[in-house]
């Protein structure tokens, strides 16, 4: 077995500013060794440790999709020592990636089902990975209807805007883009908080419909009752959690919620599972 603390060396291939306030950037990495890309075989919903020698590591959801080959992408919010350093790095710089880590959205269970994706703010990364995965021509027929409720503070804070508007044009995915508020008179999508739009636009629950929720704790807190109002059971609500992490492999001891380790047993849990654990996230 390989040393789980050893990152794969990668080169920064591209950096894109992701939001109007420049607090988020999307980094595209290419593995220095081709065989490492194969070892880094991942599923939508997993995360990885971005590893900068001399600075440290950060656990970040994988924003690229398993169906996108030749690179991996991460969208990173500038907030601490490592993320600030990363925001100042340049194309061509060498660093490391450790992973893939954690579990993923239950793609086996979701086959043949309708999927409602609910995301807020910058927690849309693994949801983007999931949408790209489901819309891939090889996969689209495996799923029923796909609805997406995605909201941000303002139009300029929405991640992956080009893709969002492209998905808007498609007839095999129902987009419900929303912003908390905007003074743009041309804004033609929703205005309102995510939980409200969920209540208004998301499909009513039936046994074949599952909701995947990823967002800040406050959005999760208020989306839960909205989904329950629509009739979703606690096994039909799938959530991705985050906690402070170091090792990412279930050993360093800080990310637990009860006996579950968010990094290894999660980050994806059903609401039913979460309801059995202390809310220490």
């Amino acid at each position: 077995m390989d040393n789980p603390y050893m990152p794969y060396p990668v080169r920064i291939d591209d950096i894109e500013i992701a939001t109007e306030d420049k607090s988020l950037k999307t980094f595209k990495f290419v593995f220095l060794n081709k065989e490492d890309e194969e070892k880094f075989s991942y599923q939508a919903g997993q995360f990885a440790e971005l590893s900068i020698p001399g600075v440290g590591e950060i656990p970040i959801g994988i924003a690229s999709s398993p169906v996108e080959k030749g690179f991996v992408k991460f969208t990173v919010f500038k907030t601490g020592v490592v993320t600030s350093h990363l925001h100042n790095m340049k194309v061509g710089d060498i660093m490391g990636i450790r992973g893939p880590l954690g579990n993923w959205y239950p793609w086996d269970k979701l086959e043949g089902k309708n999927v409602v994706i609910i995301g807020g703010g910058f927690a849309f990364t693994t949801l983007r990975s999931s949408i790209i995965y489901m819309l891939d021509p090889a996969n689209r027929s495996k799923f029923g209807t796909i609805d997406v409720v995605y909201g941000a503070r303002s139009p300029g804070m929405l991640l992956y805007r080009d893709e969002l508007f492209e998905w808007e044009q498609r007839d095999d995915i129902n987009m419900h883009i929303t912003v908390d508020g905007t003074d743009d008179p041309d804004w033609k999508y929703n205005v309102g908080f995510v939980p409200t739009i969920v209540e208004q636009k998301a499909p009513k629950a039936d046994p074949d419909t599952y909701a995947i929720v990823c967002g800040p704790p406050i959005m999760i807190k208020f989306t839960q009752p909205a989904l329950e109002k629509l009739g979703y059971g606690e096994e039909q609500i799938i959530m991705s959690l985050e906690n402070r992490m170091k090792c990412g492999i279930g050993m360093c001891g800080r990310c637990n919620i009860g006996k579950e380790l968010v990094c290894k047993d999660g980050p994806v849990f059903t609401l039913k599972e979460i309801n059995l654990t202390p809310k220490e996230y």
């Binding site: 603390y5 900068i52 020698p53 001399g54 600075v55 440290g56 590591e57 170091k246 090792c247 050993m251 360093c252 001891g253 800080r254």
Partner: peptide, 10 residues
């Protein structure tokens, strides 16, 4: 007690 932290030093 096995909990640990990981830090880089340069």
């Amino acid at each position: 007690c096995w909990c640990f932290d990981i830090q880089d030093e340069t």
